[in-house]
Computed example of a mutant assay.
Amino acid sequence: MLPEVWRAAYSPDDLKAEVKSFTLWRVTIDPNNPATDARASVILMKFLRAKELKVNDAKTALIATLRWRDEMKIDEIETEEFPKIFSGAGRNFGHDKQGRPVTYNVYGGDVDVKELFSDVRRFIRWRVQFMEKSIELLDFENVDQMVQIHDYKGVSMMSRGANEKAAASEATNIFQSHYPEFLVSKFFVNVPTFMAWVFWAFKAFMSAKTFAKFSMVGTGESTIGVALLPYIDAKELPKVYGGEADAW
Protein backbone atom coordinates (compact mmCIF):
# COMPACT_ATOMS: atom_id res chain seq x y z
CA MET A 1 0.00 0.00 0.00
CA LEU A 2 2.71 2.54 0.92
CA PRO A 3 4.39 2.50 -2.52
CA GLU A 4 0.97 3.42 -3.96
CA VAL A 5 0.66 6.19 -1.39
CA TRP A 6 4.08 7.60 -2.34
CA ARG A 7 3.30 7.57 -6.07
CA ALA A 8 -0.12 9.17 -5.59
CA ALA A 9 1.34 11.88 -3.35
CA TYR A 10 4.64 12.63 -5.07
CA SER A 11 4.42 11.28 -8.62
CA PRO A 12 0.77 11.05 -9.71
CA ASP A 13 1.69 11.45 -13.39
CA ASP A 14 4.26 8.66 -13.38
CA LEU A 15 2.99 5.65 -11.49
CA LYS A 16 6.14 3.74 -12.42
CA ALA A 17 8.48 6.21 -10.74
CA GLU A 18 11.02 4.84 -8.30
CA VAL A 19 9.55 4.88 -4.81
CA LYS A 20 11.70 6.71 -2.27
CA SER A 21 11.64 7.24 1.47
CA PHE A 22 9.85 10.27 2.86
CA THR A 23 9.99 12.07 6.19
CA LEU A 24 6.96 12.83 8.31
CA TRP A 25 7.39 14.60 11.66
CA ARG A 26 11.13 13.86 11.73
CA VAL A 27 10.57 10.14 11.16
CA THR A 28 11.85 8.61 7.92
CA ILE A 29 9.39 6.16 6.41
CA ASP A 30 10.55 3.65 3.80
CA PRO A 31 7.46 2.67 1.77
CA ASN A 32 9.09 -0.60 0.79
CA ASN A 33 10.02 -1.54 4.34
CA PRO A 34 8.32 0.66 6.97
CA ALA A 35 9.04 -1.87 9.71
CA THR A 36 12.67 -0.71 9.84
CA ASP A 37 11.61 2.03 12.27
CA ALA A 38 8.95 1.33 14.89
CA ARG A 39 8.14 5.03 15.01
CA ALA A 40 6.93 4.84 11.42
CA SER A 41 4.37 2.26 12.45
CA VAL A 42 3.14 4.57 15.24
CA ILE A 43 2.66 7.43 12.77
CA LEU A 44 0.90 5.27 10.19
CA MET A 45 -1.35 3.84 12.89
CA LYS A 46 -2.52 7.36 13.68
CA PHE A 47 -4.13 7.58 10.26
CA LEU A 48 -5.73 4.16 10.71
CA ARG A 49 -7.12 5.02 14.13
CA ALA A 50 -8.47 8.33 12.87
CA LYS A 51 -10.37 6.43 10.16
CA GLU A 52 -11.55 3.67 12.52
CA LEU A 53 -9.12 1.15 10.96
CA LYS A 54 -10.59 1.55 7.47
CA VAL A 55 -7.51 1.03 5.32
CA ASN A 56 -8.69 2.76 2.15
CA ASP A 57 -9.85 5.82 4.09
CA ALA A 58 -6.55 5.97 5.96
CA LYS A 59 -4.66 5.66 2.66
CA THR A 60 -6.63 8.57 1.19
CA ALA A 61 -6.00 10.67 4.30
CA LEU A 62 -2.26 9.99 4.24
CA ILE A 63 -1.99 10.90 0.56
CA ALA A 64 -3.90 14.13 1.20
CA THR A 65 -1.63 14.99 4.12
CA LEU A 66 1.58 14.43 2.16
CA ARG A 67 0.26 16.58 -0.69
CA TRP A 68 -0.90 19.28 1.71
CA ARG A 69 2.49 19.44 3.42
CA ASP A 70 4.19 19.91 0.07
CA GLU A 71 1.70 22.58 -1.01
CA MET A 72 2.04 24.42 2.31
CA LYS A 73 5.84 24.15 2.16
CA ILE A 74 6.03 23.02 5.76
CA ASP A 75 9.84 23.17 5.76
CA GLU A 76 9.66 26.90 5.05
CA ILE A 77 6.93 27.50 7.62
CA GLU A 78 9.04 25.81 10.29
CA THR A 79 11.76 28.46 9.93
CA GLU A 80 9.50 31.44 9.25
CA GLU A 81 9.73 34.37 11.67
CA PHE A 82 6.55 35.96 12.99
CA PRO A 83 5.87 39.26 14.79
CA LYS A 84 6.38 39.41 18.55
CA ILE A 85 2.63 39.32 19.11
CA PHE A 86 2.68 35.60 18.39
CA SER A 87 5.25 34.79 21.09
CA GLY A 88 2.62 35.02 23.81
CA ALA A 89 -0.10 33.22 21.87
CA GLY A 90 1.50 29.79 21.87
CA ARG A 91 3.54 28.18 24.63
CA ASN A 92 4.73 24.67 25.47
CA PHE A 93 5.14 24.00 29.16
CA GLY A 94 5.19 20.91 31.35
CA HIS A 95 3.65 17.47 30.98
CA ASP A 96 0.54 15.69 32.16
CA LYS A 97 0.70 12.79 34.61
CA GLN A 98 1.31 10.35 31.74
CA GLY A 99 4.29 12.31 30.45
CA ARG A 100 2.51 13.93 27.53
CA PRO A 101 3.49 17.55 26.73
CA VAL A 102 1.01 20.34 27.44
CA THR A 103 0.60 23.14 24.90
CA TYR A 104 -1.11 26.47 25.54
CA ASN A 105 -2.92 28.61 22.98
CA VAL A 106 -3.72 32.03 24.44
CA TYR A 107 -6.39 33.95 22.58
CA GLY A 108 -7.14 36.49 25.28
CA GLY A 109 -5.51 38.14 28.27
CA ASP A 110 -2.52 40.27 27.30
CA VAL A 111 -2.52 39.01 23.71
CA ASP A 112 -3.74 41.53 21.13
CA VAL A 113 -6.35 39.27 19.57
CA LYS A 114 -7.32 41.79 16.89
CA GLU A 115 -3.74 41.98 15.64
CA LEU A 116 -3.27 38.22 16.02
CA PHE A 117 -6.07 37.53 13.55
CA SER A 118 -5.61 40.61 11.35
CA ASP A 119 -4.07 38.42 8.64
CA VAL A 120 -5.75 35.00 8.48
CA ARG A 121 -3.10 33.43 6.21
CA ARG A 122 -0.32 34.61 8.53
CA PHE A 123 -2.16 33.22 11.54
CA ILE A 124 -2.63 29.83 9.88
CA ARG A 125 1.07 29.61 9.01
CA TRP A 126 2.01 30.50 12.57
CA ARG A 127 -0.49 28.03 14.01
CA VAL A 128 0.89 25.24 11.82
CA GLN A 129 4.44 26.17 12.87
CA PHE A 130 3.45 26.03 16.54
CA MET A 131 1.87 22.61 16.02
CA GLU A 132 5.01 21.33 14.33
CA LYS A 133 7.14 22.62 17.21
CA SER A 134 4.82 20.96 19.70
CA ILE A 135 5.13 17.66 17.84
CA GLU A 136 8.90 17.88 18.26
CA LEU A 137 8.24 17.14 21.94
CA LEU A 138 6.90 13.68 21.01
CA ASP A 139 9.24 10.75 20.51
CA PHE A 140 6.69 8.37 18.91
CA GLU A 141 8.05 5.65 21.16
CA ASN A 142 6.75 6.44 24.63
CA VAL A 143 4.67 9.52 23.86
CA ASP A 144 2.75 10.32 20.69
CA GLN A 145 -0.04 12.63 21.89
CA MET A 146 -0.38 15.97 23.65
CA VAL A 147 -2.75 17.96 25.85
CA GLN A 148 -3.94 21.34 24.59
CA ILE A 149 -5.25 24.24 26.67
CA HIS A 150 -6.96 27.17 24.96
CA ASP A 151 -7.26 30.33 27.08
CA TYR A 152 -9.96 32.90 26.22
CA LYS A 153 -9.48 35.19 29.21
CA GLY A 154 -11.23 38.50 28.74
CA VAL A 155 -12.66 37.64 25.35
CA SER A 156 -16.12 39.10 24.86
CA MET A 157 -18.94 38.01 22.62
CA MET A 158 -18.49 41.12 20.49
CA SER A 159 -14.73 40.72 20.03
CA ARG A 160 -14.88 37.66 17.74
CA GLY A 161 -14.68 39.09 14.25
CA ALA A 162 -14.94 37.48 10.83
CA ASN A 163 -11.19 36.86 10.65
CA GLU A 164 -11.11 35.02 13.96
CA LYS A 165 -14.03 32.82 12.98
CA ALA A 166 -12.49 32.07 9.57
CA ALA A 167 -9.11 31.23 11.13
CA ALA A 168 -10.68 28.97 13.76
CA SER A 169 -12.65 27.10 11.11
CA GLU A 170 -9.66 26.59 8.82
CA ALA A 171 -7.31 25.60 11.63
CA THR A 172 -9.82 23.06 12.93
CA ASN A 173 -10.11 21.52 9.48
CA ILE A 174 -6.33 21.39 9.04
CA PHE A 175 -5.67 19.68 12.35
CA GLN A 176 -8.47 17.16 11.94
CA SER A 177 -7.41 16.30 8.38
CA HIS A 178 -3.62 16.41 8.58
CA TYR A 179 -2.65 15.85 12.23
CA PRO A 180 -4.60 12.71 13.19
CA GLU A 181 -4.70 11.40 16.73
CA PHE A 182 -2.20 13.89 18.15
CA LEU A 183 -4.65 15.24 20.70
CA VAL A 184 -5.53 13.29 23.83
CA SER A 185 -7.59 16.11 25.36
CA LYS A 186 -8.29 19.81 24.93
CA PHE A 187 -9.46 22.22 27.63
CA PHE A 188 -11.06 25.59 26.90
CA VAL A 189 -10.38 27.75 29.97
CA ASN A 190 -11.51 31.17 31.10
CA VAL A 191 -14.59 30.79 28.94
CA PRO A 192 -17.50 32.87 30.31
CA THR A 193 -20.81 31.04 30.48
CA PHE A 194 -22.38 33.33 27.90
CA MET A 195 -19.64 32.35 25.46
CA ALA A 196 -20.42 28.64 25.58
CA TRP A 197 -21.26 28.91 21.88
CA VAL A 198 -17.51 29.15 21.17
CA PHE A 199 -17.10 25.65 22.55
CA TRP A 200 -20.13 24.20 20.79
CA ALA A 201 -19.29 25.90 17.50
CA PHE A 202 -16.38 23.50 17.04
CA LYS A 203 -18.80 20.55 16.96
CA ALA A 204 -19.87 21.42 13.41
CA PHE A 205 -16.32 21.09 12.10
CA MET A 206 -15.14 17.79 13.54
CA SER A 207 -15.98 14.19 14.25
CA ALA A 208 -17.85 13.14 17.39
CA LYS A 209 -14.74 11.19 18.44
CA THR A 210 -12.60 14.32 18.39
CA PHE A 211 -15.23 16.54 19.99
CA ALA A 212 -15.48 14.08 22.91
CA LYS A 213 -11.91 15.05 23.85
CA PHE A 214 -12.99 18.65 24.49
CA SER A 215 -13.85 20.14 27.89
CA MET A 216 -15.06 23.66 28.64
CA VAL A 217 -13.85 25.17 31.91
CA GLY A 218 -15.00 28.35 33.61
CA THR A 219 -12.95 31.30 34.80
CA GLY A 220 -10.51 31.81 37.66
CA GLU A 221 -7.45 29.93 38.94
CA SER A 222 -9.42 27.85 41.43
CA THR A 223 -12.03 26.70 38.92
CA ILE A 224 -9.43 25.90 36.30
CA GLY A 225 -7.25 24.08 38.82
CA VAL A 226 -10.13 21.81 39.81
CA ALA A 227 -10.50 20.78 36.17
CA LEU A 228 -6.82 20.41 35.29
CA LEU A 229 -5.08 19.12 38.42
CA PRO A 230 -6.54 15.60 38.11
CA TYR A 231 -4.58 15.35 34.85
CA ILE A 232 -1.58 17.63 35.39
CA ASP A 233 0.55 17.70 38.53
CA ALA A 234 0.58 21.05 40.36
CA LYS A 235 4.34 21.44 39.77
CA GLU A 236 3.75 21.08 36.02
CA LEU A 237 0.85 23.54 35.90
CA PRO A 238 1.31 27.35 35.81
CA LYS A 239 -0.01 29.30 38.77
CA VAL A 240 -2.39 31.24 36.52
CA TYR A 241 -4.19 27.93 35.94
CA GLY A 242 -4.32 26.81 39.54
CA GLY A 243 -0.93 25.09 39.73
CA GLU A 244 2.38 25.85 41.45
CA ALA A 245 4.73 26.51 38.52
CA ASP A 246 6.21 29.94 37.79
CA ALA A 247 5.85 29.42 34.06
CA TRP A 248 5.27 32.97 32.80
Rank of each mutant, 00 (worst) to 15 (best):
Met72Val: 00
Ala247Arg: 09
Val5His: 08
Asp119Thr: 02
Asn92Tyr: 13
Ala58Met: 03
Leu62Asn: 06
Met195Arg: 14
Pro238Ala: 05
Pro31Trp: 04
Val147Gln: 08
Trp68Ser: 03
Ser159Glu: 12
Phe175Asn: 15
Ser118Gly: 15
Phe175Ala: 14
Asp144Glu: 06
Thr223Gly: 00
Arg160Ala: 13
Gly88Phe: 11
Leu183Asp: 03
Asp37Ala: 01
Gly161Thr: 00
Leu15Thr: 10
Glu78His: 02
Lys235Gln: 11
Ala61Leu: 13
Val55Ala: 05
Asp233Asn: 13
His150Tyr: 12
Ala40Cys: 04
Phe205Met: 11
Glu164Lys: 01
Ala247Gln: 08
Ser87Val: 04
Gly243Asp: 02
Leu137His: 10
Ser215Tyr: 06
Ser41Gly: 08
Leu229Met: 09
Arg49Gly: 08
Ala61Tyr: 11
Asn32Pro: 06
Glu132Trp: 09
Phe22Leu: 04
Pro31Asn: 09
Arg26Tyr: 01
Gly99Trp: 06
Arg160His: 12
Ile29Pro: 06
Asp233Gly: 12
Arg49Asp: 07
Pro180Ala: 09
Met195Glu: 15
Leu15Phe: 10
Ala89Tyr: 05
Ala162Trp: 03
Asp119Cys: 10
Glu18Gly: 00
Gly108Ser: 14
Lys133Gln: 15
Trp197Asp: 00
Phe117Trp: 13
Ile135Lys: 07
Ala167Met: 02
Val55Glu: 12
Gln98Tyr: 12
Arg67Trp: 02
Pro238Cys: 07
Ile85Glu: 12
Arg39Phe: 03
Ile85Pro: 12
Lys84Leu: 15
Val42His: 00
Glu181Lys: 05
Ile174Asn: 02
Lys213Trp: 13
Thr60Ala: 12
Asp119Pro: 06
Asn56Ala: 06
Leu228Gly: 07
Asp70Trp: 11
Glu181Asn: 08
Ser11Phe: 09
Val155Gly: 13
Ala212Cys: 05
Leu44Gly: 10
Phe117Val: 07
Asn190Val: 03
Ile74Phe: 09
Pro34Asp: 04
Ala162Arg: 08
Pro83Thr: 15
Val147Phe: 11
Leu44Cys: 12
Glu141His: 10
Ala196Leu: 05
Val106Asp: 01
Ala196Pro: 00
Gln145Asn: 14
Gln148Met: 13
Met195Gln: 15
Phe93Lys: 14
Val217Arg: 12
Ile63Phe: 04
Asp119Gln: 06
Glu132Val: 12
Lys46Gln: 01
Asp119Val: 06
Ala38Tyr: 00
Thr103Leu: 07
Ser118Ala: 15
Ser118Lys: 13
Gln176His: 14
Lys186Asp: 06
Ile77Asp: 02
Val184Asn: 03
Gly220His: 00
Asp14Val: 02
Thr219Tyr: 11
Ala168Met: 05
Asn32Ala: 08
Ala35Gly: 11
Ala89Val: 03
Ile63Arg: 07
Leu53Gly: 00
Val189His: 05
Val128Gly: 04
Ala38Arg: 09
Arg100Lys: 14
Trp68His: 08
Ser11Tyr: 09
Lys20His: 07
Tyr241Asn: 03
Ser159Leu: 08
Val111Lys: 03
Ser159Gln: 13
Ala38Val: 01
Arg7Trp: 07
Thr65Met: 07
Asp96Pro: 14
Pro83His: 15
Arg122Cys: 13
Leu48Gln: 01
Ser156Glu: 15
Gly99Gln: 07
Thr23Arg: 05
Arg125Gln: 09
Arg160Lys: 15
Leu137Trp: 04
Ser11Pro: 10
Glu244His: 11
Ser177Lys: 10
Pro34Gln: 05
Ser185Arg: 15
Ser118Cys: 10
Val102Cys: 10
